[in-house]
C-alpha cells in the first residue's frame, strides 16, 4: 500500500485517482502508524511553499516524514512536495524540510524562450526531461515523452542529487534525489501514460524494497 501524505495539498485526490486507475492500493492519510505501515509514501503538493510548510509543521507531519526517510522508506515528492524536501524556498521566504540539500528559486523573468521572447511564468504545460543519471522511475518510459508542469519556482539541489533536467529559458532540475528518495517537479498524475508508468515504477520499487526487508 502507498500512503499519500494528507496535508490538504490540492492534488492529493488526483494522485489517488491515478493510483486507483492503476490498481495500486493506496490511502490518503495523516496517521503516523498507517504511514509507517505503508510500502512507500507519496508526498504531493500544489500551491505555495510557505502554506505547505505551515500545514506540515502544525500537524507534526514534518517529523513523520523525516522519520520515514531516515528509516529508508521509499518516498516520491511531487511539485511543491518536490520543492520543500530542500533546505529553503524563495517562495514566501520559507525554511523547508532540509531532507535534500539545496534551494528552490524563482524563474528569472529576464530569461528568454527559443524565439527570443521573455518566458512566461508560471511554466505551464508539457515539457521533456533529460536524464543525467539512470533512474528506475523512467524504466519503460518512451523516449521523447513529456510531462505536465505548472510552477513558478524550481528546485536547485546540490549537483550530486540532480537526476533529470528540463529546458525552460535555462536548464533546471526537474527530477532530484537518490535511489528510494525521489522528487519530481512535474505532475505524474496528470502526465498521461508516461506519468502513469512512472507511478507504476515507483510502486514496483516499493514492493521490491518491502520484500527485501
Amino acid at each position: 500500500m502507498l500512503a499519500i501524505l494528507d496535508y490538504k495539498a490540492g492534488n492529493q485526490t488526483s494522485v489517488r485517482r491515478a493510483l486507483d486507475h492503476l490498481g495500486i492500493p493506496n490511502r490518503i492519510t495523516a496517521d503516523s502508524e498507517e504511514i509507517a505501515a505503508a510500502e512507500g509514501v507519496i508526498f504531493p503538493g500544489v500551491g505555495a511553499a510557505g502554506q505547505a510548510m505551515d500545514e506540515l509543521t502544525s500537524t507534526g507531519l514534518d517529523a513523520v516524514l523525516r522519520a520515514q526517510v531516515e528509516a529508508g522508506k521509499p518516498l516520491l515528492g511531487i511539485c511543491v512536495g518536490c520543492q520543500i524536501l530542500l533546505d529553503y524556498s524563495q517562495e514566501n521566504d520559507t525554511k523547508a524540510l532540509g531532507i535534500v540539500p539545496g534551494e528552490c528559486v524563482l524563474f528569472n523573468s529576464g530569461l528568454e524562450d527559443e524565439n527570443g521572447d521573455p518566458i512566461r511564468v508560471p511554466h505551464m504545460g508539457w515539457n521533456s526531461v533529460a536524464l543525467k543519471k539512470e533512474c528506475v522511475l523512467f524504466d519503460g518510459v518512451e523516449p521523447g515523452s513529456e510531462f505536465y508542469f505548472v510552477h513558478s519556482y524550481f528546485p536547485n539541489p546540490a549537483p550530486e542529487y540532480v537526476i533529470g533536467v528540463t529546458q525552460y529559458g535555462r536548464d533546471f532540475c526537474s527530477v532530484h534525489g537518490s535511489p528510494g528518495l525521489w522528487a519530481v517537479q512535474f505532475h505524474p498524475e496528470k502526465s498521461g501514460r508516461p506519468g502513469l508508468k512512472l507511478l507504476q515504477n515507483f510502486y514496483a520499487y516499493c514492493r521490491e524494497d518491502a520484500d527485501a526487508q
Partner: peptide, 8 residues
Amino acid sequence: VAEQIFIP
C-alpha cells in the same frame, strides 16, 4: 472524467 483521463 477525472477517473478516466490523466491530463489536466
